[in-house]
Simulated assay, not measured.
Amino acid sequence: MITVTRLNGTKVTINALFIELIEEAADTVITLTTGNKLVVKEKTSELIELNQQFLQTIGLVAAAQKSE
């Protein structure tokens, strides 16, 4: 799970495994596999870092590195 900030300043925690697409224009839009969209303050690079940290905590990054 990662916590992001909506444009109105409220925090929301989402399951990072459901992120399908991140678009960055004037605002950053996260599209989930459910079709839901969130507009957030974080930039794409921050979201990628948060997602990588999450994947490490659940052991998916280590598992992917061992299979290479």
Rank of each mutant, 00 (worst) to 15 (best):
A64L: 12
T10F: 11
L47K: 02
I58K: 13
I48W: 08
A25E: 15
T33R: 12
Q52I: 08
T28N: 03
S67W: 05
G59M: 02
Q53T: 09
K43L: 12
L55F: 13
K43R: 14
E49A: 11
N36R: 14
S45I: 05
V39N: 02
L38E: 00
N8P: 03
K11P: 04
A25C: 13
T13A: 14
L50S: 05
Q53Y: 08
Q52L: 12
V39S: 04
M1S: 12
I22F: 00
N15G: 07
A16W: 05
G35F: 08
T44E: 15
K41G: 02
I22Y: 01
K43W: 07
T44K: 14
G59C: 04
F54H: 09
L60G: 04
S67V: 09
I14D: 06
G9N: 14
G35Q: 08
Q53R: 14
I48Q: 07
L17D: 10
L7Y: 03
I22M: 01
A64P: 00
V29D: 02
L47H: 02
V61I: 13
T31F: 02
T10A: 15
E49Y: 06
K43D: 06
K66D: 07
V39Y: 05
S45W: 01
T10M: 07
L21Q: 14
T28S: 02
M1A: 13
Q56K: 11
L21Y: 12
S67Y: 07
K43Y: 08
G59Y: 04
A62E: 12
I30R: 03
T44A: 11
E20G: 13
E49M: 09
N8L: 06
V61M: 14
M1L: 11
T34I: 06
G59N: 08
V61L: 11
T57Q: 15
N15I: 03
L55I: 06
V40D: 02
K37V: 03
A62S: 14
T13S: 15
L38R: 01
L47G: 00
E20D: 15
A64S: 09
A16L: 10
V40A: 02
G35D: 07
N15L: 07
F18H: 14
Q53A: 14
E23K: 00
L17I: 09
L60F: 04
T44M: 09
K41E: 07
F54C: 09
E24T: 06
V4D: 00
Q52M: 10
K43M: 05
T13C: 10
N51Y: 03
E49K: 11
L55D: 04
L50Q: 15
E20Y: 11
T33Q: 11
N51A: 12
V29Y: 09
N8K: 08
N8V: 06
A63E: 15
L60M: 11
G9S: 13
L7F: 01
L47D: 01
T31N: 06
A26G: 15
L7W: 02
T57W: 09
I48N: 06
E42S: 03
E23M: 09
T28G: 02
A64Q: 09
L47E: 00
T57K: 13
A25D: 15
T3H: 09
S45P: 00
I30W: 00
T33V: 13
A26H: 10
G9E: 10
R6H: 07
